[in-house]
Design a protein around this nucleic acid. Structure first.
Length: 108
DNA sequence: AGTTTGACTGGAG
DNA sequence: CCTCCAGCCAAAC
């Protein structure tokens, strides 16, 4: 089953745009929610071209280890400014910051 | 049309 | 915790 790139891109944007302030998602999670589990790299590709768009909080997307993009140091500053919990080694504390359906309970 | 690339991932050392 | 490696797959070259 081939991938619907146009729809995939649209879904990725919608998902990322829905991430609450101070919360993060992983590339794999976005790909999964968009309906294509093994396309985490494609998510990264799309967001790379979306950095210019201030409408999209693409800085709230990190890799599965909670590590920000090595080639984009500004991302860490943006996250810290939102109060995202970082561990001493420089990676996000995913246990606290990752956005999932359970996180919806905290927003109440 | 074939090869290389990468804002990924999970596991191994 | 760190780096390295193989698997991954559409996009870019």
């Amino acid at each position: 089953m081939p991938i619907d790139t146009a729809r995939f891109r649209q879904d990725v944007y919608s998902i990322v745009a829905a991430v609450p302030y101070g919360r993060v998602l992983t590339y794999g999670q976005v790909a999964l929610l968009a309906g294509y589990p093994n396309h985490s790299r494609l998510v990264g590709r799309l967001l790379c071209g979306a950095t210019a768009s201030a409408q999209l909080p693409c800085h709230r997307v990190v890799n599965a280890q909670g590590r920000p993009a090595p080639v984009w140091q500004e991302q860490r500053l943006l996250l810290e400014a939102e109060g995202v919990p970082f561990k001493p080694n420089g990676s996000v504390d995913m246990h606290l910051a990752q956005w999932n359906y359970l996180s919806l309970l905290d927003l109440a």
